[in-house]
């Protein structure tokens, strides 16, 4: 099964439970942060200005949720529980609401990932063109081993992704924001060298 699918299923409830325990410490709003560093707000300075600009582009604050989450992920690499709390606060929503939305969209990371996040398309059109071999090469060469796992050096996380919409350029991969077309197992190591 794909890594994205694997995040749910039997683990879903357990994961949610674990999060609840975690939030006892380092909460978003003035938590004492004795065990973890105090939460640093994402929306200040330039990002706050960016958010305020977004407010002028939509008739509701709620509509700024997806863009706001992108800003969080851009700043932090993933979307933590305290960050969800902050987003909820700046948009007048509840954390539960925001979390329901975050978990709907597979591009938002609810866990930390490697420095470089690699998404490889293995949906049918690419699949018949050898995408699974590309995926295996990526797992091998990055040292990630498994889909969704982060390499021991913290450099990479590789996941399978459903259709990147570049089926004529099989196999496409997305490394962070770089869209790379026509990847073959042979090209993998050369590509990875560009990402330290």
């Amino acid at each position: 099964m794909s890594a994205t699918a694997g995040q749910g299923g039997s683990g879903a409830g357990a994961a949610a439970g674990a999060h609840r325990g975690m939030s006892e410490h380092g909460s978003a709003h003035g938590g004492k942060g004795t065990e973890t560093a105090p939460y640093e707000r994402v929306f200040k300075g330039e990002r706050l200005a960016r958010l305020e600009w977004l407010f002028t582009k939509y008739p509701t604050k709620q509509a700024c949720l997806l863009p706001a989450l992108w800003l969080v992920q851009e700043a932090r690499g993933w979307i933590s529980e305290p960050a969800i709390g902050e987003v909820a606060e700046v948009l007048d929503l509840t954390p539960a609401y925001v979390k329901g939305v975050v978990t709907f969209y597979t591009m938002y990371h609810t866990h930390p990932v490697g420095r470089h996040f690699i998404q490889v398309c293995t949906t049918s059109p690419c699949n018949i063109c050898g995408a699974e071999d590309v995926m295996k090469a990526l797992l091998r060469e990055t040292g990630c081993g498994d889909l969704g796992a982060t390499s021991p050096d913290g450099r990479f996380t590789v996941i399978e992704v459903e259709c990147l919409g570049a089926c004529g350029f099989a196999t496409p991969i997305l490394v962070d924001d770089d869209f790379i077309e026509g990847v073959t197992p042979e090209k993998v190591s050369g590509i990875l060298q560009r990402y330290q």
Binding site: Q62, P67, Y105
Partner: peptide, 22 residues
């Protein structure tokens, strides 16, 4: 910008997504 959901290509799902919903 979407965030990884095929179904948002369905027009009413897209409207919800723009509104900041699932």
């Amino acid at each position: 910008r979407g965030a990884g959901a095929y179904i948002c290509g369905e027009e009413t799902a897209m409207l919800n997504s723009i509104e900041g919903k699932r």
